[in-house]
């Protein structure tokens, strides 16, 4: 758009876009605001926007009553663990696909992506059964493995696209210089692909953090992450809006921040490169 636009036009655009943007953002904003109210203020009619007694009490109560930190810790372990585990498995696979392509590479990649589309509910009971058999039900390791598996195709896919941008000659140079395969990947490929790997990591932490089928169905108490913790608020007793808001704010804040950094990767990762 090399064209000059009238200030009037720009003003109208700005007002319209901000109005819609704020409208879409409003539920989140309202949740954050409510988390600083007392329970009575939270349900006040008319609703209170900014002029109430700001309090941090809800955050303390949520932590105290429901041991928020434990759920948070589970979320961190599961989301972080599954992503890192996925990267460890995906980096070599993506290296193979990007730098030693064969006739079947594309088919394998497509097949991997297609496993992502398997409806979870179709395999719910077998997984449930296997988890009981293997003693993995309600364990962090079990959930970490499942989330790693459901996100592995996206991790492989994203790394593959980033690796393909790295010239193969550089890896060959390393090979000539005496680097073993491990050294080639560790000292040359990985450092060069750091931005891509970081983006992949980010997007997958987000996806794992928000995953709400397996986390709800494969955990009870011990390994339950924040998704399950929040779901436990669905049958509450007494006044709880402010506390719900505090808990929600804590559950979404870290991911909201990470998410803002990863908008571009989102497009690349979730459309499998079909939209550029």
């Amino acid at each position: 758009m090399a064209r000059a636009v009238t200030t009037r036009r720009k003003t109208i655009n700005t007002v319209a876009a901000w109005a819609i943007g704020l409208l879409i953002f409003f539920p989140i904003l309202w949740t954050i605001l409510t988390s600083f109210k007392t329970e009575a203020q939270a349900i006040n009619d008319p609703p209170l926007f900014l002029f109430f007694d700001w309090t941090l009490e809800n955050y303390a109560v949520v932590q105290e009553r429901s041991d928020y930190m434990r759920f948070l810790w589970n979320s961190v372990i599961i989301a972080g663990g599954s992503t890192i585990l996925g990267l460890i498995i995906a980096v070599p696979a993506a290296w193979s696909m990007a730098f030693v392509p064969s006739k079947r590479t594309k088919d394998i990649l497509m097949w991997m992506l297609s496993t992502k589309m398997l409806p979870a509910v179709g395999v719910l009971y077998p997984i449930y059964l296997l988890f009981i058999e293997l003693g993995l039900l309600d364990t962090r390791i079990g959930l970490t493995i499942v989330l790693m598996l459901i996100n592995l195709p996206i991790i492989v896919w994203m790394l593959y696209t980033y690796f393909k941008e790295i010239p193969g000659e550089i890896l060959e140079a390393a090979r000539m210089d005496g680097a073993t395969l491990k050294e080639e990947i560790l000292y040359i490929l990985t450092p060069m692909a750091i931005p891509g790997i970081a983006s992949t990591l980010l997007l997958n932490v987000i996806l794992a953090w928000n995953e709400a089928f397996w986390t709800l169905n494969l955990t009870a108490a011990k390994a339950a992450p924040l998704t399950a913790f929040i779901a436990s608020y669905s049958s509450p007793e007494g006044l709880f809006y402010a506390k719900l808001s505090a808990a929600s704010t804590m559950a979404i804040a870290p991911i909201l921040i990470l998410g803002w950094f990863s908008q571009k990767q989102l497009v690349r990762g979730l459309t499998f490169g079909a939209v550029k």
Binding site: T31, N210, L216, I252, L256, G259
Partner: peptide
């Protein structure tokens, strides 16, 4: 932003 809100949170809110 809403895309990054976990489904259980958005449903409950």
């Amino acid at each position: 932003a809403p895309f990054f809100v976990m489904p259980t949170v958005s449903a409950l809110v």
